[in-house]
Structure formats: C-alpha cells, structure tokens
Simulated scan of single mutants.
Amino acid sequence: MFQRILKQMRDKVRNRQYVMTLHAEEEMSDDELTIFDVERGILTGEIVERQKDAQTGEWKYLVRGHTVTGDDIAVVGKIGLTGKLVIITVYRL
C-alpha cells in the first residue's frame, strides 16, 4: 500500500541517510537490538500502519520486519524535513 514510501526508507538505509532519535537508541538498547537489526527490519519489512503525529501533523510509518537473527521487529520512522529517514522508535515484537 505504501510502496513508494517504503522504497524511500530502504534507499535511505542503504545510503546511510538516516538518523535515530535518542528514544529509538534507548529502546534499541533496552530490547538488546543492534543498528544492524534496525536496518534489516526496514530492508525486510513492510509498512503495516501509517500514523499522523499529533504534534507536527507529519506522517510516520510502522514497519514490521525481521532482525538479523530472524526475530520480529517494529520500526517507526518518517522522512524528515531534511530528506533523511528519522527512526523514531524500535522494539522487538
């Protein structure tokens, strides 16, 4: 359904054009995930939900994919004003 956005997100990951919020880094650490897990989650995943940010009005996307070990992972991200992918949060499913 959101193939154009998913392609943009994957391209940003492949070209290292992304940033992670502090919240995403904390959640990644709490769930014992690595940046490689997050990247693989986006590269193997599908967008399952689009959400409108209550504060900014921007669209953010929930991607469900797999870690490098095959576990399920969720990544919430958006394309920021600078054109980079902003990874808002991540968590193990």
Rank of each mutant, 00 (worst) to 15 (best):
D30L: 10
G41V: 03
G70L: 10
V19G: 09
R64F: 11
D37F: 01
K84Q: 13
V38N: 05
K60E: 13
F36G: 12
G70V: 09
L22S: 13
M20I: 03
I88G: 02
D53Y: 08
I47K: 10
E26M: 03
S29T: 09
E25C: 04
D53L: 08
I87M: 04
I47E: 09
A24Q: 01
A54N: 12
G45E: 05
V75K: 00
D30Y: 10
I88E: 03
T56I: 04
Q55S: 12
E27N: 12
D72N: 12
G83V: 12
K60Q: 14
G57Q: 12
I47G: 10
G70T: 08
G65W: 06
R50D: 10
E25F: 00
G70D: 09
D37V: 00
I42Q: 04
A74S: 11
Q51G: 01
V48W: 07
F36L: 13
V63H: 05
E32Q: 13
E26A: 07
E25V: 01
L33A: 06
I88C: 04
L43M: 15
V86K: 02
T82E: 08
E25R: 10
A24K: 00
G45V: 03
V75C: 05
T67N: 11
T44K: 07
E32G: 08
T44Y: 06
Q51R: 14
A74T: 08
A24M: 01
L85D: 02
E46S: 15
T67Q: 07
D31W: 02
D71T: 09
H66T: 11
T56Q: 06
V86W: 00
H23T: 04
V86T: 13
L62W: 02
I35K: 14
T67C: 13
G41H: 07
G70S: 12
E46D: 15
V68H: 07
Y61A: 05
T67G: 10
D53C: 11
H66F: 13
G70R: 10
Q55H: 10
V63N: 03
I47Y: 13
G45I: 02
G83M: 10
G57Y: 12
E26Q: 10
L22K: 14
R50M: 15
T34S: 15
T34D: 11
L43D: 04
I47D: 09
T34I: 11
F36V: 07
E26T: 02
V38K: 00
E39V: 04
Y61I: 01
F36E: 15
F36D: 15
V48Q: 11
K60W: 01
Q51M: 09
T89A: 09
V63Q: 04
W59T: 06
